[in-house]
Design a protein around this nucleic acid. Structure first.
Length: 850
RNA sequence: GCCCAGGUGGUGGAAUGGUAGACACAAAGGACUUAAAAUCCUUUGGCCUUUUGGCCGUACGAGUUCGAGUCUCGUUCUGGGCACCA
């Protein structure tokens, strides 16, 4: 990709001493606690901001280029706010429980805490080397006892509120991670961490009743300034649906079958029913003749993985139970089938099947020869395909002639009057499987007592700390390694003081991140998870920046916990994160052959602009954008760039690449452009003649324009265009023999959120005391942003034909007559009749002719 | 299948309904240099034209408008999410 090795370019380039400058100012900031923030009461509420990053998991690989992207964005914004007179809370910490450290412990025997500590130190070093304005005194780690003390405490609040329950239900199980998973952690039937196929397993679990908050989690989304896509994902995930619950009597049995349907209007078309293989009535409904067939089928479905069961492409399977239900609207007997296309976990695990108007039911009916009755006038033959659109009801007795909406209303009324159904709401959202059968997580603070049942560990005994273990290996039987520590497991019941056993499951990684934003507010409080006054001082988070991968995980879980804390009166805001911004992914270039296979970057040569060939074969390859991966040799390590070009260049480039929210490829050549820009500034400040003179009118005007643009764009997080405006200004300054000091001061201030080290150095060189981060943001005079003369575009019939220079704020008549007298315009107007004239002051004249 | 984004030069990307391509990269040419690097200057959407200039051009096709990259409708492609949710 690069013809010349990068290293040679650097060595030869005139280089600004970023290394010394950056070290010098990082040391200064640290020693002077420049970014320490307190709950200073002199700032009124509207002059306080809480700017938060999604804290990282401290992996062994260190920072990825994606981290500095979001972190620089919030850092710029925080610094900008501070300079504009806000008190800004901008903290950083570590999401430190998690599987990699534990898996490493299994392999090497190293305690996960040791590994994690080491990784945190590396992360902290890297973060500090980027010059972020975090208040490091507030740093937290979720795996510290001091911290998880309060994670456990919040769990106890949830438990006391009845939102945590123990259940022995089939849950998602990852055979490779050897632990249960939450629904949110399963992507396309696979474990979101390791990609292994997820199985169903029946094990004892602690579950949090997130479904109790489904409606609130849905409704409150409207009040949030979040990307629509994330809101849409959460809405879809919660999946609220309105319909009806209908009860079917069973022929010859004193039992009934309840179903959930969104289409109760099609009840006259229900020709059979289906229950899930796990339905509680399976045994009872199976007749003697069908017993063998049913048992065989149930056995088969048990062995199917989730992925196999939900694979849409696969054929429908099922078996007749032998029993019949009575359709409440017409008294007809309809057969009850057992099939795994009905899920036990949604609705009642049973459905009424209307094959004429539902694709899945239609497919099943066709396969098993069940009747298909049209009940909505269809534009297709329902014997050959299902009609799922709206229509006028037919074959539906007293619903005939009504459309879908009216028929649903009328049917609901009928069902309620006749006591066989009612309006109902269902959600796709499932309760949160909260226990993990692993070591490296918060112990769930519960004790199982044979006398008293489940008992909470008393608050004054928290934190319940993780014991040392000999082996970190999960048992794989559905129990955590903690079961192997009898001295820890065997305990005294806090209630009756008899012998009891501790809960051995641990919490999922999401627990710690559910509330960390609250702990940053008061990280060293020994008596409470957060001081209420401080909480009121800072909350809610004004800006939260992070990747989109947590849309239905962390962001849903923490909203849930926050809602509960709000109900308990422990926090003052309904929602934790007022404004959310998703940074785009930083991708990389890769090269694709005709057969769509990708070629590693180091095997590709650019033969002419935009034309690439694979070196070995000479085959032409296309430049495409791909995720960074080791095999493609296109992974960018931010440490290398910080070392070779400085943190300011990395910060500036990541912001210059494109809009924060878009995904965009790393281009090292583009990076060099930004480096050159900073180098140019350095040469101006260190080599050019700088004098305390008034800037020329042109430079003054450009400076005001630049302040305006950088202010507006920083405010709205459009950092890329703010930077290009600064480049425009620097390019002009670079042409000057003598540079006015005033102009450079303004430039330093504008730069300071973006390239804080270079800006501090400039500020000092211009004769000021540090720190520039405490200075006031520059202001601009709108009247000084306008040019004396503006270019007026002359259009004839909307087509650009000429341009003229006119003085600013010319009146319409002057503009029009000037346009008409323009030589070029005249040739286009000759012999034509003017139909219409449009004049936009300071912009254009459009003359419509015939 | 459903729900969200999005499609602009060789590349990353700019454009309150008003000059499409700011800024940057890459490329070509030049200055400086013994030479190279760095730096500085010039050119750079396509086609036609000696110049002047003209025509075309923001995925495709319509529409609204004096004027559309931008608004509306349809099509198509790409990315992300969900998916037998009754």
């Amino acid at each position: 990709m690069n013809k010349k090795p990068l290293k040679n370019i650097i060595d030869a380039m005139s280089k600004y001493p970023f290394n010394e400058i950056e070290k010098k100012w990082q040391k200064y900031w640290e020693e002077n606690k420049t970014y320490k923030v307190t709950e200073d009461p002199s700032f009124p509420k509207d002059k306080r901001r809480y700017v938060l990053d999604m804290f990282p998991y401290p992996s062994g690989a260190g920072l990825h280029v994606g981290h500095p992207e979001g972190y620089t964005a919030t850092d710029i914004y925080s610094r900008y706010l501070t300079m504009n007179g806000y008190n800004v809370l901008h903290p950083m910490g570590f999401d430190a429980f998690g599987l990699p450290a534990e898996n490493y412990a299994i392999k090497t025997g190293t305690h996960p805490y040791t590994t994690t500590k080491k990784n945190i130190e590396n992360f902290r070093r890297q973060l500090k080397s980027l010059g972020f304005s975090y208040d490091w005194d507030r740093e937290i780690s979720t795996c510290d006892e001091e911290y998880y003390h309060w994670t456990q405490w919040i769990f106890e609040k949830l438990y006391e509120k009845g939102l945590a329950y123990e259940a022995n239900t089939p849950i998602n199980w990852c055979p490779s991670c050897k632990t249960g998973l939450a629904n949110e952690e399963v992507k396309e039937g696979r474990c979101e961490r390791c990609g292994e196929k997820v199985e169903k397993k029946n094990i004892r679990q602690w579950i949090l009743k997130i479904t109790a908050y489904a409606d609130r989690l849905l409704e409150d989304l409207d009040s949030l300034d979040w990307p629509e896509s994330v809101k849409a994902m959460q809405r879809n995930w919660i999946g609220r649906s309105e319909g009806a619950s209908v009860t079917f009597k069973i022929d010859g049995l004193d039992e009934s079958l309840e179903v959930y349907t969104t289409r109760c209007d099609t009840l006259f078309g229900a020709t059979y029913m289906v229950i899930a293989p796990e339905h509680r009535l399976v045994k009872e409904l199976t007749t003697a003749e069908q017993k063998d067939a049913v048992e065989k089928y149930i056995e088969e479905t048990k062995h199917k993985s989730d992925l196999e069961r939900t694979d849409l492409a696969k054929d429908k399977t099922g078996v007749f139970s032998g029993s019949y239900a009575i359709n409440p609207v017409n008294g007809k007997k309809i057969p009850i089938w057992i099939a795994d296309y009905v899920l036990i976990s949604y609705g009642t695990g049973a459905i009424m099947a209307v094959p004429a108007h539902d694709d899945r039911d239609w497919e099943f009916a066709k396969k098993f020869g069940l009747p298909i009755i049209e009940v909505l006038k269809s534009e297709v033959d329902v014997q050959t395909q299902a009609w799922t659109e709206d229509g006028i009801h037919v074959n539906s007795s007293w619903l005939d002639g009504l459309n879908k909406k009216d028929a649903i209303a009328k049917m609901l009324e009928w069902l309620e009057k006749n006591g066989c159904g009612h309006k109902a709401v269902n959600y796709k959202l499932r309760d949160w499987v909260f226990s993990r059968q692993r070591y490296w997580g918060e112990p769930i603070p519960l004790v199982h007592c044979p006398e008293c049942g489940t008992v909470l560990v008393p608050e004054d005994e928290l934190p319940l700390t993780l014991p040392e273990v000999e082996k970190y290996e999960p048992s794989g039987t559905g129990e955590s390694p903690l079961v192997n520590v009898p001295s820890w497991v065997n305990c005294e019941c806090p209630k009756c003081h008899g012998p009891a056993k501790r809960e051995t499951n641990t919490m999922p990684q999401w627990a710690g991140s559910c509330w960390y934003y609250l702990r940053f507010i008061d990280p060293h409080n020994h008596d409470a998870f957060v001081d209420p006054e401080k909480e009121k001082y800072w909350m809610p988070v004004s800006l939260y920046v992070g990747g989109t991968e947590h849309a239905v995980l962390h962001l849903l879980y923490s909203r849930f916990w926050h809602n509960v804390l709000y109900d308990l009166g422990l926090v003052s805001t309904k929602e934790p994160f007022q404004k959310l911004v998703n940074q785009g992914m930083i991708t990389s270039f890769a090269y694709q052959k005709k057969n769509k296979s990708l070629v590693p970057v180091d095997k590709v040569k650019e033969v002419e602009p935009g034309k690439f060939i694979e070196e070995d074969t000479g085959e032409e390859v296309n430049q495409v954008i791909a995720k960074m991966s080791k095999s493609l040799k296109n992974v960018i390590n931010p440490d290398d760039f910080i070392k070779n070009y400085g943190a300011d260049s990395v910060r500036m480039y990541e912001m210059f690449m494109g809009p924060l929210t878009e995904s965009k490829p790393w281009a090292t050549n583009g990076f060099m452009g930004v480096y050159r820009f900073l180098d140019r500034i350095w040469r101006i400040i260190s080599e050019r003649k700088i004098e305390d003179i008034e800037p020329s009118k042109d430079i003054d005007r450009l400076t005001h324009k630049t302040v305006k643009k950088v202010t507006e764009d920083t405010e709205t997080l459009n950092f890329n265009t703010a930077i290009s405006q600064m480049m425009v200004l620097v390019n002009e300054i670079n042409k000057l023999e003598v540079v006015p000091k005033k102009t450079l001061e303004t430039l330093a201030l504008l730069l300071s959120p973006y390239t804080p080290h270079l800006a501090e150095e400039m500020w000092e060189m211009l004769g000021h005391n540090p720190s520039i981060s405490k200075e006031k943001w520059p202001t601009y005079d709108a009247s000084k942003c306008v040019d004396d003369e503006v270019e007026i575009v002359i259009q004839i019939n909307g087509k650009l034909r000429s341009k003229i220079m006119m003085s600013h704020n010319c009146d319409k008549e002057t503009l029009l007559s000037a346009a008409k007298n323009d030589e070029k315009a005249k040739t286009w107007l000759e012999g034509k009749t003017i139909v219409k004239e449009i004049v936009v002051p300071n912009k254009l004249v459009n003359i419509v002719v015939k």
